[in-house]
Structure formats: structure tokens, C-alpha cells
Write a protein that binds this DNA or RNA. Structure first.
Length: 419
RNA sequence: GGAGAAGUGGCUCAGCGGCUACAGCACACGCUUGGAAAGCGUGCGUGCGAAAGCACUCGCGGGUUCGAGUCCCGCCUUCUCCGCCA
């Protein structure tokens, strides 16, 4: 949600920004026209309220039938107009929620194919044997079991077993250790959130086409797609002192993705699944700090993938690929030998005051209050990290060497093939 | 699930149906100071308006009343006790 005053004053800019993101910009004209009606009715209703308040003040001292009847007739007028006012306010709110956060000035205008490769880091290994994909490796080492997931739940759910499970916990330990050094507080969050929190973060809660989110029937609860929702949402309706900021969290949660509309894509293995675990960074900060902190989150992500020794490329997304909330977004894509290409493993966004405004998260300073900024970034999407490690560290026999940096957390150097 | 109590600004809390919802803490700015603390002053929920100002706001939604933080009804949440339970 944007500041209504800002939309009024910068209608053309907002329209362009909305179009740049690939959203329907006609809502802005619609919004402005409803907003105008809304404000006119506010003035009208407030005038009636004012008259009635005055009348009631007089009545306190001087109780006459004449005044009482006047007050009653004003009340009747209000009873007629207030529902109209509420309806208009509701419309304004709904339309305003449809406008995405404009992109930052340095973001390239364009579509997904205009995303910019900022740099490629790490040397792509030249395997002397035919490479296997992560699923084959997972089966050879008996660390991935998709069949069991399908039997017990459905396709898109999977088991991680043996050394695979140990590797996932090692990744968690490694990441939390690193993030603690950067001042992040580790958090284990709920894996569900109510609709207000989901929508407040800029996610579409229940649109059936392109549905992304699981809903719990009969409850105001969705399964979260990312701990961003629970980490940002935990401070809704909160005003911080400037000295409390920045607040940095490293949240561990399960993540649920419905993935409707992506049938047939990445069906093999665990690249695209309905459930996985993730460590997510979320920062609350002063508005003027958010750009620098965004670069910091990006650096931490690059540091992680550099230390893991997995080749990656850094992508700066164009406006059309930013989504609803982000003003700027970087993805890291790790090299996947079996596919002979880079695939997304992290994403970090500066959402500026977009989420804060929707969720009422403010900072108090200079004698007033203002909305703060929120940012998020993936530390590890654990499934995809596992894929990247498996494929890049595979040996000829199908065993997997543990990256040096993880060895202290797992206590071994290799995941062996199991008979 | 049962019984009781409570929800007022970032926090702690006052508020017999009627002026502008009390106060303290915290925070910001200023005065004071060699510097700080203390002290003093100002500000510190939302909307509309260029502004003066007006309106709204006491968990949420209804109702009674000329008038509701206050009375009535429903709901939500939290706390205490009981029950169940990893």
C-alpha cells in the first residue's frame, strides 16, 4: 500500500511504476476517482457530526424538546450517510492494496528477460565423468526419498534421510552461526499465519488462479510460503524507538508453496516442491538505511555461496520481475551441472515502507512517527542448497564430498553411496 | 473444553453517562551546563484541510441514550485456576 497523499500528488509516476512492474495501472485512475468521492463525503459527514456535537453540548446545559429533535434528525442523516462513507473507504482500501511498490530508481525497466547478470563467481568444475542429477545422487546415497513422500502425502513432498538429514542440519548450524556474527537473532517461527499478516506482507492470500498459498479450511490461517511473513508480521502495529533499529532476524521455518500453474515444470527431483525448510533474513530499519542494508544482505548471500564453493551468478531483477512488494531485488543462481545452467537459490528484496505501511510498523523520532523500512533475503532454501551441493560436489561413484566449510558441522567429509 | 478476571497511546496505569480521555516512564527538540545528569519548556495515535481548524480513536461489532471509555448484548484476545495433552 502506498501513501494516498503520494498517489494523489504523483499519479502519473505511480501509473508508470505500476506498468513497469507489469501490473494493471487502470486501478490508479479508479482509485483517484473513488478517493475524491470519499473525501467529499468525509467533509460532508464531519460537518454533520460537528453540528450534532455542538447541539449535544448545548443539551447538556439546556435540555429542550426542540434541541433533542434536531439532534435526532442529524443522527438520522448520519445513519444514512455513514454506511456510504464506510463503503467508499473500503473501496479505497481495496484498490490501494492493488498498487505495487514502485521500483527503486536504479532498477532496470523491463521484463523477466531483461534481468541483468551482475557477475559470475566461482569456477565451473569440469567433470571427468558423466554427471548425475541430485535425484540420482540422492537415491544412490539413500538420502532422498520422493516415493515415500508421495505415498504418505502427495507428489511434491519428500523425505530427507540419513546423511542428507545431517547435511541439512549442518547447513542450518553453519548459517545461524554466520548470521549471529552479523548481528542477526535466530528465530523459530510458526509455520502458519493469518490473512492479515499474509496480505500485509504483499502476498495474495486466496486467489484461486495462480494460487500459491495453502489455506487451512475453517480457520483464518494459511501455511506460510516463507518466514518473511512471520518475521515481518510479528511486529505489526508496533512503533519502535529509532535506537531499537536496525532489528535483524534469522528465521527458521517450513515453507509451503501450492505451485498451482506450474505443473510440468521441474517435476523431477526436489527443485520445485510443496514443502521445504528455509532460513530467512529479515531486517527492520530506518528508511535512509535500507539501501545500504539491502547491499549487505546481498553480500552475506554471496559470502555464503562463495564459502560453499558453488559457482553462482548474481542477478539484478528488472522491474517486471520484482513482484508486488519489492523495490529492488537480487537473486543468486547457483550452477547446476545436471542442467548445465544456473538456478535460483536465494532472493533478497528491499520492500521499503510497503509492508510497514500495510502492517502499521513505525519508528518514532524527531517528535513524530514514520513508517520504517523492511527487507528480506534468503540465507538458505535448504532443499535447493542441498541440490547445489550434491551436484557440484558429486564424485564419480555417486558419493558426495562435504564442502570444507560445512565439515565441522557434520563431522565427516563425504556422503557415501549406500547399497 | 469448564470457571473467573482483564483489554485505554511504545510501556505502566487513572477515568461516578456530559467541557479538551489523567498521570508517570520512554522517546525527540529546545533552555540550562565546561560537559553530562537532574530540572524546566515543547512535542509525541489516525483522517480531511493550504491553514485556522474539524472529525475520528479507549480489543472488534451491534444496541440503549440528545450524549457511551463508562450501561446492555455478541464476538475476539490475554491472564489465573481446572481438565486434556507432546
Amino acid at each position: 500500500m502506498l501513501d494516498m497523499q503520494y498517489v494523489r500528488d504523483n499519479a502519473e509516476l505511480v501509473k508508470k511504476a505500476t506498468k513497469d512492474k507489469g501490473f494493471d495501472s487502470s486501478v490508479i485512475d479508479e482509485l483517484l476517482s473513488i478517493d475524491e468521492k470519499h473525501r467529499a463525503l468525509i467533509a460532508e459527514v464531519e460537518k454533520i457530526r460537528h453540528d450534532r456535537n455542538n447541539l449535544n453540548d448545548q443539551l447538556k446545559k439546556n435540555r429542550t424538546e426542540e434541541l433533542i429533535s434536531q439532534s435526532r434528525s442529524l443522527k438520522a442523516e448520519l445513519d444514512k450517510k455513514e454506511p456510504e462513507l464506510d463503503a467508499l473507504a473500503q473501496q479505497v482500501k481495496e484498490l490501494a492494496l492493488k498498487i505495487p511498490n514502485p521500483s527503486a530508481a536504479d532498477v532496470l525497466v523491463g521484463k523477466e528477460e531483461d534481468n541483468q547478470v551482475v557477475r559470475q563467481v566461482g569456477k565451473i568444475k569440469d567433470f571427468s565423468f558423466p554427471v548425475r542429477d541430485h535425484l540420482e545422487l540422492g537415491m544412490l546415497t539413500k538420502t532422498l526419498d520422493l516415493t515415500a513422500g508421495t505415498k504418505v502425502a502427495q507428489s511434491g513432498f519428500y523425505y530427507v534421510k540419513g546423511m542428507g538429514a545431517m547435511l541439512e542440519f549442518a547447513l542450518v548450524q553453519y548459517a545461524l552461526n554466520k548470521l549471529a556474527k552479523h548481528g542477526f537473532t535466530p528465530v523459530i517461527t510458526p509455520n502458519v499465519a493469518n490473512e492479515h499478516s499474509v496480505v500485509g506482507c504483499g502476498f495474495q492470500a486466496r486467489s484461486d488462479k495462480e494460487r500459491q498459498i495453502y489455506h487451512i479450511d475453517g480457520e483464518d490461517l494459511d501455511l506460510i510460503g516463507t518466514a518473511e511473513i512471520t518475521l515481518v508480521g510479528q511486529h505489526q502495529d508496533t512503533t519502535f524507538n529509532a535506537s531499537d533499529l536496525p532489528l535483524k532476524y534469522a528465521g527458521y521455518s517450513y515453507c509451503y508453496r501450492y505451485e498451482k500453474g506450474s505443473y510440468g515444470r521441474d517435476v523431477r527431483g526436489i527443485i520445485r516442491v510443496h514443502e521445504f525448510r528455509k532460513i530467512e533474513m529479515v531486517v527492520f530499519c530506518l528508511p535512509e538505511e535500507s539501501d545500504a542494508i539491502h547491499e549487505k544482505l546481498r553480500e552475506i548471500e554471496e559470502e555464503i555461496w562463495t564459502e560453499l564453493g558453488v559457482p553462482y551468478q548474481l542477478i539484478k531483477m528488472a522491474t517486471g520481475d520484482l513482484g508486488n512488494a519489492a523495490s529492488r531485488k537480487y537473486d543468486i543462481e547457483a550452477w547446476m551441472p545436471s542442467q548445465n545452467k544456473y538456478r535460483e537459490v536465494t532472493s533478497t528484496s528491499n520492500t521499503t515502507d510497503f509492508q510497514a505501511r500495510r502492517l502499521g510498523i513505525k519508528v518514532r523520532r524527531n517528535g513524530g512517527t514514520e513508517y520504517l523500512h523492511t527487507l528480506n533475503g534468503t540465507a538458505f532454501a535448504l532443499g535447493r542448497a542441498m541440490i547445489a551441493i550434491y551436484e557440484n560436489y558429486q564424485n564419480e561413484d555417486g558419493s558426495i564430498t562435504i564442502p570444507t566449510v560445512l565439515q565441522p558441522f557434520i563431522g565427516t567429509t563425504v556422503i557415501p553411496v549406500q547399497k
